[in-house]
Amino acid sequence: MRKSLGDGIANDLRFVVRRLVGEENFVEMHPNRSNNYCCGGGGGALQGGFPEARRRYGRLKAEQIKATGATYCIAPCHNCHSQIHDLAEHYRGNWRTVHLWTLICLSLGMLGEAERTYLGPELKEACL
């Protein structure tokens, strides 16, 4: 977000997420916004052929997410989603990685059964 659109849109998305999950369920990671770290999936890294380096790069992100204690991490794009999902497996994180569109549709009561791949068992049948 910092790279192309800055903190303005990062704040807009936080507004959306807070409304979707409720203030009490929103946990910020540190550092955040423009001071946050890249997850390590970008710049071609997912196809770059250095998976070990890619995961070592992502360790910082994995530790940031673990420190929040959150059970869901929202990823802004497909690359980030793939990387953060992989980091959870590699570093044995307890979080699930979801796209924002999944939570928006869940909140609006229009998320289909087949669209819940990345949700945990507790949300597999919620608002169906």
């Binding site: 910092r2 790279k3 770290y37 890249c38 970008g42 250095f50």
Partner: peptide, 15 residues
Amino acid sequence: TPWVWMCTLCRRCTH
């Protein structure tokens, strides 16, 4: 250096 392929061009350094 293969490092240029490990950097994701995230721009935090420039920031």
